[in-house]
């Protein structure tokens, strides 16, 4: 049960891969306020898709829809070939969607290791009665999953804080632990909401490296909201740009960077 899968996806292969998630004409309103209007795009298997746009564009709302926290008023979302309208978050989890949050949503009362272990909950099958006993099958299962989590901890270079309560960790490390917890779920689709917010240059480079490694080694498809244009242009395969709930551009980083509307709405020109 090794955590490192053999996957070698080059850009050419990625372009031809089928869509893992398709968003079709999705609209979302809160009361009378339109958060998303008629958004359509797709995320191909194995790619890194960036979602960018000014604040209030609806990026987090979009992720929340994919996750099952919000239910679109119209339109549909097709995941792994099956359309789903009203999905609860735990269903999204069991289907293979994991996520990190803008404001770190870790379990502050638990240690790093325990947080990452909670990511394995869906994989833990030993029922209540074995848990009562703990010694025996439940313990063996715990150790099995501990081994997997330790590989993730090694990968993210957080061995030194594995027993620290996460509430005590600095922000950058907390974000890394959150990534680890999402990875523990072995997701097919990983949604990252501003994973590099509040980090300095070194931390950002580390995070980029982790994201790229996750994509290449684990084969995980990644959708990523990010404000740092350098990061977006460097690591993403394709970009979708939102503004006030509308999609204004969709394509490779170079295409999007040159798009007139995107420059007006978001990027600006260097003087």
């Amino acid at each position: 049960m090794s955590a490192v899968a053999e996957m070698a996806h080059g850009p050419a292969t990625r372009a031809a891969a089928e869509a893992l998630l398709t968003v079709e004409n999705v609209s979302l309103t809160f009361g009378g306020v339109g958060a998303l209007s008629d958004i359509s795009f797709d995320i191909r298997k194995g790619e890194i898709r960036a979602i960018i746009g000014p604040n209030g564009a609806g990026k987090t709302s979009m992720l929340n829809c994919i996750n099952g926290f919000y239910h679109p008023r119209s339109g549909r979302i097709i995941f792994k070939g099956k359309p789903r309208q009203r999905m609860r978050p735990y269903e999204a989890a069991s289907q293979g969607i994991a996520r990190t949050f803008q404001n770190v949503a870790l379990f502050k009362g638990m240690s790093t290791l325990d947080n990452i272990l909670t990511g394995r909950t869906l994989k833990m099958k030993r029922n209540f009665f074995w848990q009562l006993l703990r010694h025996g099958p439940a313990m063996r299962e715990e150790i099995e999953h501990r081994i997997y989590c330790e590989e993730i901890i090694d990968f993210l270079e957080i061995e030194h804080i594995r027993k620290t309560p996460v509430g005590k960790l600095p922000y950058g490390l907390q974000k890394r632990v959150e990534l680890g917890r999402a990875l523990a779920m072995q997701p097919d689709l990983l949604l990252l909401d501003e994973p590099m917010a509040g980090m300095n240059l070194e931390e950002k480079e580390d995070m980029c490296r982790f994201i790229l490694d996750v994509n290449r080694h684990f084969g995980t498809t990644i959708a990523l909201i990010e404000h740092d244009m350098g990061v977006v242009m460097d690591i993403s395969d394709r970009v979708v740009v939102l503004e006030y709930g509308h999609k204004i551009a969709d394509g490779t980083p170079d295409e999007v960077k040159a798009d007139r509307r995107v420059i007006d709405a978001y990027l600006g020109v260097s003087h």
Partner: peptide, 25 residues
């Protein structure tokens, strides 16, 4: 036994942030 295993962790997850707990399944 309960508290140190999967079930205890689920409970603490529910306590700390139930939205994120749902996300773990």
């Amino acid at each position: 036994n309960l508290v140190h295993g999967r079930i205890g962790r689920s409970w603490m997850a529910v306590r700390d942030m139930d939205i994120a707990a749902e996300l773990m399944g």
